[in-house]
Amino acid sequence: MLWGLAAGFSRLPSGLREDSNDLALYHRSAEALLRGEVPYRDFFIEYPPGSLPVFVPPALFTDGLFGYITAFAAEMALALAAALVLVALAARRLYGPAGWPVPAATFALGAVLLYPVAVTRYDAAVALALAAAALGAAFGGRWTLLAGGALGFGAAAKLVPALALPPLLLARRGSAAREVVVFAATVGLFAVPALLLGGGNFLESLAYHAQRGLQVESVAASVLVALGGAREVVFEYGAFELRGGWTGEALALTTPLALSLLGLTALGVWRARRRAPLGGEGFARYAAAFVLAFMLGSKVLSPQYLIWLLPLVPLAAGGFAGGALCATLLAACWLTTQVFPLHYEELLSGRAPGPELLLARNALLAVLWALLLLAPARWKGEG
């Protein structure tokens, strides 16, 4: 996996490395922190405060943007390697000595397939947090405290891992108050100083994403492009967004759609919990379903979001069912890279095969979400 990520990173064009807006933002934020500036108060950053500890280490050992980017990619590759180990350990715990190769291979291959974003975005750190949570849920007992802390860090870094908290609380028998306390304390460790020092600017950073438009890669946008319901593509808020036509109506539907998908996922969790605690397998399954529900309904669906699924989907089932889930995830990862960056120009201009590839990728994600919910309440591994 590390060799594949290094090879992919080395052949990225400059537009995805030295000229990347995201990597430049990470670098500026790290340098500002090392100069003693206070985030949110002295400089604006659109990301939650848990992202800052990820941005700083590469700046401690490098000078200039190019050196920072190389060190940051190495940091993210190591995070993915650590997550891979945790996924393998969790799979062995859930499915026995012969049950870990498929989940581990799926994680590794998925990361390599997503090479344009796997080590050039900080989502690898989020994947590590989710992998630690999956490991804690798989071992159970006091290990669930580790899971609560891991999800707290993930939420402090990118919010979305908070969606995995309900499955964690339902993964064990009895009260889960300690896990909630650990989760809240970890989030507070990052959020409280940011709020006290950054004040209104910190809240403004949270509101930043609420102001975004309909990103061209979202599910709603892919349908809109296929129907010819958009007039132009513009670059706003660090991403390409659709404008004109039916864009306003589609954007207004994203919030109800997301809430509906999350509600259906919550219903599936409730039905499964009525039978028995979810356990480690159920945690991975429904955490992945919650994350997918958010992705499908969101107005933004960046390619790096698929990294969040790598520690969860491979652990959601064993045997044939698990293989089907893993195959679907890998196909979605391959299509994601076909869209971005390989056929991104065609997507932005509305020419084949860009829109068709995006529609197929989003359809696969919808199928994956449905498989997680509609399969039997408990899938047993076969070995």
Rank of each mutant, 00 (worst) to 15 (best):
L264P: 02
S260N: 00
Y115F: 15
L301P: 00
L16C: 05
L163M: 12
A127N: 07
R35Y: 06
V216R: 03
F43A: 03
A137D: 09
L348A: 06
A258H: 12
F190M: 07
T336L: 00
A332G: 04
L261V: 09
K158L: 12
P355D: 07
T254P: 11
L329S: 03
V85M: 09
L262C: 06
A162R: 02
A156H: 10
T336P: 00
A177P: 03
A331V: 13
A124V: 02
R17Q: 13
I45D: 14
L189A: 15
G141F: 10
M1P: 11
S218P: 08
G245A: 03
A59L: 03
V182L: 09
R231E: 15
L165M: 12
A156R: 02
S349W: 07
L372F: 07
A138R: 04
R378E: 13
A81R: 02
L306R: 01
L60Q: 03
A352P: 15
M1D: 08
A321F: 11
V234W: 10
L309C: 07
V126F: 01
V85E: 14
Y26A: 04
V225K: 03
G354I: 07
A147P: 11
R35A: 14
G200C: 06
D42Y: 09
A59W: 03
A155E: 13
A118T: 02
L325W: 02
A133H: 05
L224R: 01
A252R: 15
T62K: 01
A73Y: 03
A321M: 01
L86Y: 07
A258T: 14
A30W: 01
L165A: 07
M76T: 03
L25N: 13
L206S: 11
G228F: 12
A6N: 03
A156M: 10
L78C: 13
A221H: 05
L203V: 15
L259Y: 12
S51Y: 08
V119L: 04
W379T: 13
L165E: 10
L292C: 09
L372C: 06
L2V: 14
V87Y: 06
Q211W: 11
P49F: 07
R173H: 13
L12S: 09
V225N: 00
E232W: 12
A71G: 07
A129R: 01
F240L: 00
E356K: 00
G154F: 10
R17L: 15
G244D: 10
Y344I: 05
W270L: 15
G199H: 08
R121S: 06
A288F: 08
L170Q: 07
Y286C: 04
E281H: 03
F43T: 03
Y95A: 12
